[in-house]
Amino acid sequence: MNLLNNKIEHLYSNLFFLFFTAQILSPYISGKTIYLEVIIAIFNPYFWKWIYDKNNIHKIDKNYILVILGLILIAILGHISTAVKILVIFLCVIHLFYLYDKNLWKLNRYLIISILLGIMQFIFTFIDPIMAALIGPTSISTFIWGDSATPTYTNFFTVFYFPRVSGLSREAGFFASYIIVAIFLSYIERKKYPKKIYLMYFLGYIISFSKMSLAILGVFFINSLKKFINYIPIGFGVILFIGSVSIIVGLNKDFILNDPTFLHRFSGYISLYNLDMQDVLFGIDFEKVGDYSSKSIMAENLQGFAGFAGWIIENGIIVICIFFIILYLLNINMTGIYILLLFTINVSPDSNQNFVVLTYFIILKYYCKNNISWYKFLK
């Protein structure tokens, strides 16, 4: 019976990491992607048994209750989607802790499969671009789900001298983000992986290379200064981040407003200062911002500002403060928060994309105050 349970538990693990890595395999229903890895986690009885065994359910830390109350408050303020997405992130993160603790970690396996597909896509972009598109994310997702396929973007075009590809990710930028977060995790773990894994990560980094790939340099720099950065109070540190990026964006305003990629990621910092106080406090729909930046982004058929500033505009300062109070209650230090903001520079911090979830796993495991795990029953 134990052998059978072990095999079933490994099956759950394989399914989770398959759908976690290949989010193009998840359907899109009623305007939302239904992430199948979340469904796998919810219906994994071994996961819930692990939680029960690890935690004395009669002694729940008050901070965790405050975290739930914070999410409820975010929902009450009208940002139900934000509260739900954050809740889903933490569910997946706890599941990742379970898989790590039980030696069921199979992320490398499925990321390498994604990189191998990416290598095939890369080769075909030179010899047969049509075939490259046929094994790209849009074709794969549409083949499986038809009209219910999750949104994808087969953007196999040249950014830096050669085409970049997407593997099993939705698009090349997300593939690059997943790879650099996985590379950083392998660095933080200090484990000796087989050389072939590092080789595959390197190849994946090359064939997915995009502007987002450069973020790993900033993350390594931030990590090298963690002894100093962790003395910065969270509130001041976040304001410092917003101010610093805003100054950089302001000095390069003309360039950013004329480049769709940078416009999407950074023009939120321009629009942020064009809002009235009520919109800053409570958030505003992207379509209602109405300035040059938002109109330009809508002209590119994009649905909103990316990055942290866009998240502030959408949710408002009050929700953002609640979010950072939650991170404070979970003992995440300032270095961890900066790593989160850098790795999510092309999406929102509440995105359920695999690289965002993996980033939360990293900061909750390795960037808590005094190196104490955020979830006490994991010790």
Score class of each variant (00 low, 15 high):
residue 183 I to K: 00
residue 125 T to M: 08
residue 173 G to S: 12
residue 198 Y to K: 11
residue 192 K to G: 08
residue 140 I to V: 13
residue 131 M to T: 15
residue 117 L to W: 01
residue 145 W to L: 02
residue 141 S to D: 12
residue 203 L to T: 07
residue 168 L to A: 04
residue 125 T to S: 08
residue 196 K to C: 11
residue 194 P to Q: 12
residue 139 S to P: 04
residue 190 R to Q: 06
residue 129 P to K: 05
residue 189 E to L: 08
residue 156 F to D: 06
residue 121 Q to R: 00
residue 144 I to H: 03
residue 135 I to S: 01
residue 203 L to C: 10
residue 137 P to L: 07
residue 148 S to Q: 13
residue 201 Y to P: 07
residue 150 T to I: 15
residue 135 I to G: 01
residue 138 T to H: 08
residue 199 L to C: 11
residue 163 P to W: 14
residue 136 G to Y: 02
residue 157 F to M: 13
residue 195 K to S: 15
residue 132 A to E: 07
residue 179 I to L: 13
residue 152 T to A: 11
residue 182 A to W: 09
residue 197 I to H: 08
residue 121 Q to A: 02
residue 187 Y to P: 00
residue 145 W to Y: 09
residue 153 Y to W: 14
residue 129 P to N: 05
residue 181 V to F: 09
residue 153 Y to Q: 03
residue 188 I to F: 08
residue 116 L to Q: 01
residue 175 F to Q: 02
residue 120 M to Y: 04
residue 119 I to F: 13
residue 143 F to D: 01
residue 132 A to V: 02
residue 121 Q to M: 04
residue 159 V to Y: 14
residue 157 F to K: 10
residue 202 F to Q: 02
residue 169 S to M: 14
residue 145 W to H: 10
residue 203 L to H: 05
residue 142 T to K: 03
residue 188 I to M: 11
residue 141 S to V: 11
residue 171 E to M: 05
residue 141 S to N: 09
residue 195 K to D: 14
residue 195 K to Y: 15
residue 153 Y to S: 04
residue 131 M to D: 02
residue 174 F to D: 15
residue 199 L to V: 12
residue 141 S to Y: 15
residue 134 L to E: 12
residue 127 I to G: 12
residue 135 I to C: 03
residue 140 I to F: 10
residue 189 E to Q: 09
residue 122 F to I: 09
residue 204 G to M: 05
residue 163 P to L: 13
residue 138 T to Q: 15
residue 167 G to H: 04
residue 143 F to Y: 08
residue 176 A to E: 12
residue 127 I to T: 15
residue 171 E to S: 06
residue 118 G to F: 07
residue 190 R to H: 10
residue 189 E to K: 01
residue 190 R to Y: 09
residue 185 L to N: 03
residue 198 Y to C: 07
residue 196 K to S: 13
residue 115 I to W: 00
residue 174 F to C: 08
residue 176 A to G: 05
residue 203 L to E: 06
residue 177 S to Q: 09
residue 139 S to V: 08
residue 167 G to I: 03
residue 181 V to R: 00
residue 143 F to C: 02
residue 183 I to V: 09
residue 169 S to E: 15
residue 200 M to H: 06
residue 197 I to Y: 12
residue 143 F to I: 03
residue 201 Y to R: 02
residue 142 T to H: 07
residue 183 I to G: 01
residue 168 L to P: 00
residue 140 I to N: 00
residue 120 M to C: 10
residue 188 I to L: 14
residue 191 K to N: 15
residue 181 V to H: 02
residue 128 D to T: 05
residue 194 P to K: 10
residue 156 F to W: 05
residue 129 P to S: 02
residue 146 G to H: 03
residue 155 N to P: 01
residue 118 G to A: 08
residue 145 W to F: 11
residue 173 G to T: 14
residue 164 R to D: 12
residue 174 F to I: 09
residue 178 Y to I: 00
residue 203 L to F: 14
residue 133 A to I: 08
residue 202 F to R: 00
residue 145 W to D: 04
